[in-house]
Design a protein around this nucleic acid. Structure first.
Lengths: 99, 99
DNA sequence: TTATAATATGAATATATGTTCATATGTGTA
DNA sequence: TACACATATGAACATATATTCATATTATAA
């Protein structure tokens, strides 16, 4: 009856990924990006959030490779970059909505 | 181009659920319960965790209805109680492992 | 060059969270 | 009853986190 422990690396990656989805602000941002690619200031304006706050959260998501970005002049556009995580988020929102 | 905001209730429920999965200790506990129903002391022993710590984390999971319990004498056995969340956890572990 | 716009960064701070300790509660047994 | 065992609880504490503010960086336009 030996139990196969999760290795530390997997444990860390999984927990970090879910941590990204555990904050309402980050959920809002990812949910918004479902629909379209958006700039930092667009996100801040639509969600009524501080520009700095949005920037910090996007960095968090970018470090986990959950979002990607491209620059166009002075503007930087962010978009989702992890289909699996976005799918999980969508499923969970649906699941929560129908309860 | 109006954006359909997530309502506060859904946002809270989704974030709380992911928060449950964002802590290594709780992931370990849920992962362990995948295999079998286990008592608090069994969980503590197998994972080398403080009994009180396990009890606190189980309460957290129970409040979110991610686990259920049954009493047998002095012993309380815990088991998963949310198939959807357990499936997401399993998928995410698999996903993280193969990277 | 200077000015302006968009974004990023770091410090500060208040709040949240995970863990431990000590102890309480609940259950069975002598 | 008294005792032992299993679990739960609350306080305390250290650490982590989200947010804001002020400012730096980067890019464009005048």
């Amino acid at each position: 009856m030996t139990y196969q422990f999760l290795d530390e690396e997997t444990l860390f990656l999984v927990s970090q990924t879910f941590k990204a989805l555990s904050d309402p602000t980050r959920i809002k941002i990812l949910h918004l990006l479902f629909e379209q690619e958006l700039s930092v200031s667009n996100i801040a304006e639509i969600l009524d959030l501080n520009q700095s706050n949005v920037s910090h959260q996007l960095r968090f998501l970018k470090n986990l490779r959950l979002v990607k970005y491209r620059r166009e002049g002075k503007t930087i556009y962010y978009a989702p970059d992890d289909e699996h995580v976005m799918k999980i988020l969508q499923q969970s929102i649906d699941h929560a909505t129908h309860h």
